[in-house]
Amino acid sequence: MWTWFYRLASPPHFYRVAASLVPWLLWPALLLIVLGIWGGLVVAPADYQQGDGYRIIYVHVPSAYLSMMIYVTMALAAGIGLIWRIKLAHAVAASCAPIGASFTAAALITGMLWGKPMWGTYWQWEPRLTSELILLFLYFGYMSLRSAFNDLNQSDRASAVLALAGVVNVPIIHFSVLWWAGLHQGPSISKLDAPSIVFNMLWPLLTMILGFTFFFLGVLAMRVRGEVLEREFHSRWAQDVLRSTSIMEADR
């Protein structure tokens, strides 16, 4: 088990494994997302209160779910990198941040688009949108700390400490935002109440969440490959990879 783990954590080995993994992640992602969109836009019935406006949840909910899930993944990877000093884990954490920030932005934008027909305004200080906004700040803080260091090793470890401090804080932030919003009795995105969720509304949502997750993993694998190659630029295997790709391009 451990030897397998250490072998995977070696950059050249990972670089090869990830390359073969990418199509196995991105093709299912495409299939699931197409299926989910068809289910969400065609099969699922209109909501009796919100009409067709609610259908944006098929993008909003998976994005919001991934924005949180990726932050936790990033903090886990950063923690593993910090404690066991595994460079690949730092590369994974570094690659997570821009993807996570993008999904957070997507969740915010779709949330605002949903807000317009719901509340008549694009923005309400409502707990879930507010939490997403704070999460976006956390991602920005992480990424700007990363870029502030000249030394990669220092940048990896410092940003790992920040990611861990952030992940401890995320539930605290979440609950204080809920508490804060509860005091105001403000409007909230009306949930699809449990009894009203019919099977034809639910399965496209779950399909989309699964599809988005596969998409994230595929993009992550691609990003980590690039990150690893850049980090190991001076090593022989990276030079071999670079030489072989440039020869291929020359042949074309």
Partner: peptide, 23 residues
């Protein structure tokens, strides 16, 4: 502590720890 060794860090510090202090 994270930014102590960096030259320009005032805004960075606020951006990093500001969200953590919101609660």
């Amino acid at each position: 502590a994270l930014t102590a060794g960096l030259r320009q860090s005032g805004v960075l510090l606020a951006l990093m720890v500001g969200p953590l202090m919101l609660p």
